[in-house]
């Protein structure tokens, strides 16, 4: 059942609508059932969640008799952004994930944000699927604000991701969708995986397996599901080492994503195509595993090239 969650008229002959698909057990109308909400597309250039929504609905519809609760799927929170290949909200130059909880009496963007929160509020769990950005590829992971870790880590473990990253509280992040919902006692897990503007089916299927498993543990799904993989959990800021470009150039990786590295292993080169020179060889500063790697080759001074989880953290 497709429903419009929030809508607003655009200047010329068009209505902007944010839609969701509510999937109910057979023979049920809107009852008091457990509810999971799957949200994606807050950033218009992050598309991995598109396939997750499709595949999740497809699998549920195939065995509708196994559905015992409510599944709400919101595939496009920022439809104008998705349509125009824009990360933020076109015309406003705003990052939608800095506008929550929004304001129903506010501007168009705040009004839409408040409509989304109002609709998702009341869910028993919410999954907010992101896909990094166009610059970096991420291994399937869940990011958790330390303020909410007690509640969220047990849920995150069921989602079949490789890595759970608990990060420090940050004032700026108070205006994210996930923070607003977590503050309203809707446990909301932020998934980061893959890369912007692309779909990585392998990761998408991995997450769909995890969502169905979580649904099973919540008694929303009565089908058989996978045994989730055991994620690495990092709660210490020192576990993660950031690699930033020491110079501008073109980054060419020499290793694969999620590869175990020894200190001083070569991660990649920053090259200068004009002179045919290697400007810098990027070496691993520690023993560790590369959970983020740069996808977009052009780098400026300081551009993020990768993130490493230190080997000791992995063992602990």
């Amino acid at each position: 059942m497709v429903k419009t969650v929030a809508s607003v008229g655009l200047p010329v002959d068009e209505v902007l609508e944010i839609k969701k698909n509510r999937i109910l057990p057979e023979g049920e109308s809107d009852g008091k059932k457990k509810r999971i909400s799957i949200v994606t597309g807050i950033h218009g250039d992050e598309l991995e969640g598109q396939y997750v929504c499709f595949e999740l609905i497809r699998r549920i519809e195939e065995h509708k008799e196994l559905l015992k609760g409510i599944v709400d799927v919101y595939p496009a929170m920022n439809p104008l952004g998705i349509d125009s290949i824009t990360r933020g909200i076109p015309a406003f130059d705003l990052d939608m994930n800095r506008l929550f909880p929004g304001n129903k009496d506010g501007d168009m963007t705040e009004f839409l944000a408040s409509g989304m929160i109002a609709d998702v509020d009341g869910s028993d769990v919410c999954i907010d699927i992101h896909a990094s950005n166009i610059f970096l590829t991420e291994i399937p992971q869940i990011r958790i604000n330390e303020l909410h870790k007690e509640k969220l880590i047990p849920l995150a473990k069921e989602l079949n991701v490789d890595f759970i990253w608990v990060h420090g509280a940050n004032t700026v992040l108070e205006s994210t969708f996930a923070h607003s919902l977590n503050s309203r006692n809707v446990p909301t897990l932020v998934v980061e995986m893959g890369v912007g503007m692309r779909i990585t089916k392998e990761y998408c299927n991995q997450l769909v397996d995890g969502i169905l498993h979580l649904m099973e543990t919540m008694e929303i799904w009565a089908g058989e599901t996978i045994e989730p993989r055991k994620p690495i959990i990092s709660e210490d800021a020192d576990d993660v080492t950031y690699l930033n470009a020491p110079t501008a150039g073109v980054f060419v990786p020499r290793v694969k994503h999620w590869e175990h590295l020894k200190k001083s292993d070569e991660i990649g080169w920053i090259i200068d195509p004009l002179h045919g020179k290697i400007l810098e060889k990027i070496l691993s500063p520690v023993d560790g595993i590369l959970f983020t790697i740069r996808e977009y080759p052009i780098v400026d001074h300081g551009s993020l090239i990768g993130r490493l989880l230190r080997e000791e953290a992995r063992k602990e």
Binding site: R87, N133, F135, V172, Y242, N244, I298, D300, H301, G302, S303, L304
Partner: peptide
Amino acid sequence: PTDKTDINRMFPGYDLGET
């Protein structure tokens, strides 16, 4: 130009961080 970030959302800055 490259990553579309806003310098006026980066203060006080971080000398080992992104551009």
